[in-house]
Write a protein that binds this DNA or RNA. Sequence first.
DNA 1: ATTAGGG
DNA 2: CCCTAAT
Length: 557
Amino acid sequence: MVIKRRFDHVFDFSSIPKAPRSTRRKVLSSKNDGVDDIRTTAFDLLASLAGKLLEESQSSSTSSSTNAFVEGKGNIKQEDVEDDDVKPCESELASKSPPSDITSETPLEQTRVSDCERGLGLKPCGNKKEDCDDITEETGVDIEKREVKTPPGTDGVLNGSSEGYRNQSKLVCRDDDENYCKYHRFSDGCRRSNRPLTRVGHRRMMTKYGRAVPRDSRTDGCVKALYRKRKLCYGYNPWRHETVHRKRRLSDGGVSSESVTISPEKRGSVKLSINSFRIPELFIEVPDTATVGSLKRTVMEAVTALLGDGIRIGVLVQGKKVRDDNNTLSQTGLSCRENLSNLGFTLEPGHVPLCSESHVISMPTDSTDFSERSFDSRIPFHLQDADHLISSGNCVENNQELVPYQSDVSADEQQQPSSDSRALVPVSALEPEALAIVPLNEKPKRTEVSQRRTRRPFSVTEVEALVAAVEELGTGRWRDVKLRSFDDASHRTYVDLKDKWKTLVHTASITPQQRRGEPVPQELLDRVLAAHRCWSQHQMKQNGKLQAAAIMVGSSM
DNA sequence: ATTAGGG
DNA sequence: CCCTAAT
């Protein structure tokens, strides 16, 4: 699935939620922290810039026009994912089977099982059956139809408003993994897994880092697509080459400011406010198996990379870039009102980005375009866009020094924002180089095909299955847990399961307020804690026995 | 290939 | 999730 949308969002600073930095940081994982920092820094930077420039209250026209301006630009909003299609998931649930059915176990294992089942207060299988029935219902939400709704008559501009978002067009994504995975729980009753047996026929090729090599295509469409995306990005696609070429030609590029309002009030001083910045068109490609969540992250990454890459400010006067930083404003001709009205700013990337992760979508200028263009024959959009880029590039070539800027846009268009697309002059038309700003490859960390897997939060159903398996098998047999309960979920490796258990234990240990993501039922967390205690205790005992045995052996020698 | 634990 | 070390 390739989404083609123009992506010149207007960022309305006032719409950016503010929270104490410390608060926000607290809630973020260490990994996202960096991202958030970057984003925050970038926005803070912009905000402070605007603040500095805004020495005084804006001229009355400014504030009144700002909102209207943004409104008029329209909005694109990804509505939160909804589960609207409920369909029971295949679950092989347990039939009654006595927990004592462990005849094949060694005496040691027998004791540990019984110990732990006592410790965990495991119910007899009859009760487990009840659990299983409950689970059947829970798994009913496994099938998810996800939608992205875009507002009618809008053009791809983001802001906080959520008005008028009705199914103008739908982007239906499916998470294949969740759709199709089935969880086995107590599929063989209460019998403990027998490693030698379960091994047979269940081995799965794993990549070096425990990455499961998908056994079938139903669950790995995403993987393949991602890989393909990667491949495209890393060099085999014409679009990319065009991008690179263009970048060599371009010395500047980036985000343009809009709706700059200037109020030369006192003599010798210049007051102005920057109401919004527009982000240039971004190209995003995601596989149609990608989740909406991953799409969001992708867009976020693209924007973050753009802003966080280190941005510079460019100044445009009468559409021409002012390159001499040492000239005074009056020397630059910014002393009179007329000239000030032609002042513009650009955000430019800190350095010329190279290609790395080419996620990134571009959005059409209006929603009509979106609904029709995004999902039709534009799939191989690279070529078409390559053409576009080329022509844009030519434009730049002819005008390298003087970056075209529609200076009257800020003065005029913002006054009549809802007058429609005139205010939506595509960035590319103004600043073709903006197209090249797909921020890429700052950190050559992950080389080549190695890509971090897309995050797949565990569903409650999965957690349930995991907890059940660990209750049975303990915390040190992740491979067995995998085979027992996640054998059909190729994207869940035993390492994933182990990691998930780790986080579950942590989650269960913290207050509900500190938890994030889809809430895990307290009942499950209680079981997690109980199982964790039981099995770690068991492990200690076992270690003790081993030590004792070792001592015995040692002393007898 | 698995397990365990840090990042 | 990723990465490593140790089995």
